[in-house]
Design a protein around this nucleic acid. Structure first.
Lengths: 249, 249
DNA sequence: CAAAAGCTTCGGTCCAGGCCGAAACATGCC
DNA sequence: GGCATGTTTCGGCCTGGACCGAAGCTTTTG
């Protein structure tokens, strides 16, 4: 009985996320940008009234925060914890046994590179993380991570040396990628890295959606700076749909 | 459109968690123990048939794993990722603006000390974590953490020195407590610590539920070994229900 | 001021899905 | 075998809530 209260709160939040239209809205907001009610309605495939109702509920529960600006109302995820919860759910969803594999044709752009709240995700993020680790610039262990001395030099060269504040250790968490099922750089370092790569125009945000585009400048610079294998796009890390693996999924 | 697929999977999983009965079942399973369908039915407050149906759905989606044993069927959370997702949701739920405060009378035992999947949570866990950090045994930074040299000695004395394997760095993550809203020790170190404290009988699992009981042996030993303040039970870290705070909840 | 655009509120329809009773299986004990 | 216990399947009831049309509100534009 003592557990009922919290379990009910759990159910309330999960039920809120568990509606198709609202899940689409939240998924769209995972890009990190604040979006208007109309945009969210379109991306969820419902009318404006319906989306408005959903947004009211989400805001009421503290999942999204709204900001009025003229005749628009911009919504965004309320806290990083919300983004983390959504991410954790997507991880579970990605690991779930798949009945049918509707691997969408347009999904490839998302799989290659996208934003995950405030950092990078997708194959590029995984490739960079792998190479950083292989070169001894970072040391990862489960969710935690650490920047080595050589890693500091590398990030200094990118102009984000102040990440490694003297007193505080640099934050370097990892985040399990739902498409690649491999960890990639998240946390404060991940956020700073993404904003720096955007700033240097090695990457650009797609006009709509969460996809990240690799500029021609970035194409060469990324491979050079992070010593990525030239065929990093091809490396199919997990052949999840080809052969049956022993693990059950 | 490219996002629809994943958003739908997100909605599917969340909707599964978002039902009161199923949330109660999952919440009960967060204790880490495998439970029978009957026990889960009772803890969810539904009949056996209903619980059976729910368990089938949860197993089908890969959230719980079932194991037949005689005429019982034991269910447990399928993967650590599921536990993590539930935890993340509970964190969001705990941060949500509270309409009414039905702080249950029996909830106090849970708030004091309980299991959180495989490690400790509640006031005791937070107090230990705080003191470890204050004494320089561990260094925490957001989700990541590290054991210092003095911390290694402390854990050696507890008989869990092998945690700090030579090659691998000790895993030391933190986990935000839904009742105290403070981080506490999780990750591999948290799991090992809990099992060691149970083994030494400083703590004992409550016969039912997730509460942890502090033995008379542990009462003294915990304070002594971790240098806890003698009044650690009283320290009301967040006076969430007494005085109105500025934060909105 | 009127018109348009963006958003919300209201009212009514409709359906997915949770719930239980009854009955069927399955397993263990006598 | 006969009975008790644990669990699942089936069928029918019923409620919560998602959805949209229409109308109302607010802010920008002309």
């Amino acid at each position: 009985m003592s557990a009922v209260i919290s379990a009910n709160m759990l159910a309330t939040i999960a039920a809120l996320i568990g509606d198709t239209a609202r899940a689409n809205i939240l998924f769209a907001l995972m890009g990190g940008k604040a979006l208007t009610a109309g945009e969210l309605a379109a991306s969820a495939g419902v009318t404006a009234q319906t989306a408005s109702g959903h947004l009211a509920k989400l805001a009421d529960a503290g999942l999204v925060a709204v900001e009025k600006q003229g005749r628009h109302r911009y919504s965004r995820l309320a806290t990083p914890e919300v983004a983390q919860a959504l991410h954790a759910l997507m991880t579970v969803a990605a690991m779930a046994p798949r009945r049918h594999h509707p691997t969408g044709p347009r999904e490839v752009a998302l799989r290659l590179a996208r934003t995950c709240y405030d950092h990078m995700a997708g194959r590029l993020a995984v490739a960079i993380t792998d190479q950083l680790q292989a070169d001894g610039h970072i040391i990862l262990d489960d969710g935690a991570g650490q920047i080595t001395r050589s890693g500091q030099h590398l990030f200094d060269a990118l102009g984000i040396g102040q990440t490694t504040m003297p007193g505080k250790r640099p934050l370097c968490r990892t985040c399990l990628d739902w498409s690649e099922r491999r960890p990639h750089l998240a946390g404060r370092l991940g956020a700073i890295l993404l904003s720096r790569l955007l700033e240097m125009q090695w990457l650009a945000k797609a006009p709509a959606g969460r996809a990240l585009l690799i500029t021609s400048l970035g194409e060469k610079a990324l491979i050079e700076h992070f010593r990525l294998p030239v065929d990093w796009r091809q490396t199919d890390l997990y052949p999840c749909r080809s052969n049956g693996n022993s693990n059950g999924f």
